[in-house]
Structures are given as structure tokens and as C-alpha cells.
Deep mutational scan, measured.
Amino acid sequence: ETFPLDVLVNTAAEDLPRGVDPSRKENFLSDEDFKAVFGMTRSAFANLPLWKQQNLKKEKGLF
């Protein structure tokens, strides 16, 4: 299941849709939104070091 970017960005855990893991908001973006937000594919993002993934998520309001 995916959700629009505005539902996930800068949203407190208690305000997220049911079933969304607040530590993994990026997994609930569509592939198109994911690429638009991070400028890379999911596989490229997954290959980044964890610290870099976290920094990007913070920068984009998805942490």
C-alpha cells in the first residue's frame, strides 16, 4: 500500500495512516514519488550506508 507524499512528510507517528511504520515511511511512497523525493531508485537508496539513508530521510521530512 502506498500513500501520497503529503500524508507522510513531517507527520508524527500517531497521525500516520494505520499500518505505516514511522521508521520506514519511505517504503510507503509510490515508486514515482520515491524517485522524485530522493532522486534515485529504491535499490540505489538501499545500497547507501545507513547513516546516509537516515540523513536523506531527515532532509526530506521522512524521518
Score class of each variant (00 low, 15 high):
S43H: 14
D15F: 10
A13E: 14
M40I: 07
S43M: 14
G19T: 09
D21P: 03
A44L: 08
D31H: 06
S30W: 01
F63G: 15
L8G: 05
P22A: 11
F38W: 01
F28L: 07
D15Y: 07
D6Y: 10
T11E: 07
L50M: 12
A36W: 10
P49G: 02
L8H: 03
K58R: 13
G61K: 03
R24N: 10
W51N: 09
T41R: 02
F63K: 08
G39T: 02
V7Q: 11
E26H: 03
M40Y: 05
E1P: 15
R42G: 01
D6A: 13
K25P: 08
V37K: 02
F38Q: 00
E14R: 11
P49H: 02
E59C: 11
L8F: 02
A12F: 07
G19S: 11
V7K: 11
F63S: 15
N47W: 06
L8W: 02
K58D: 07
S30T: 11
L48P: 00
N47Q: 13
L48E: 02
L50P: 12
G39R: 05
L5C: 09
T2K: 11
L56P: 00
A12N: 13
D6K: 09
F28W: 14
Q54F: 11
V9Q: 15
R42M: 05
L29P: 01
G19H: 10
N47D: 14
D33I: 06
F28Y: 15
F63H: 15
P4Y: 04
Q54T: 13
F63D: 15
D6Q: 09
K60G: 02
T41C: 08
N27F: 09
Q54E: 13
K52N: 07
V7D: 07
P4M: 03
E32K: 09
G19I: 11
L5S: 03
R24D: 04
F45W: 06
K35L: 15
S43C: 14
R18D: 13
T2R: 09
E1F: 13
F45T: 00
L56N: 01
A44F: 08
L62V: 06
K52I: 14
L62K: 02
L50S: 10
R18S: 15
T41N: 10
P22G: 06
E32V: 09
R42H: 04
A36D: 11
L62Q: 05
F3K: 04
A13R: 10
L5T: 05
N27L: 13
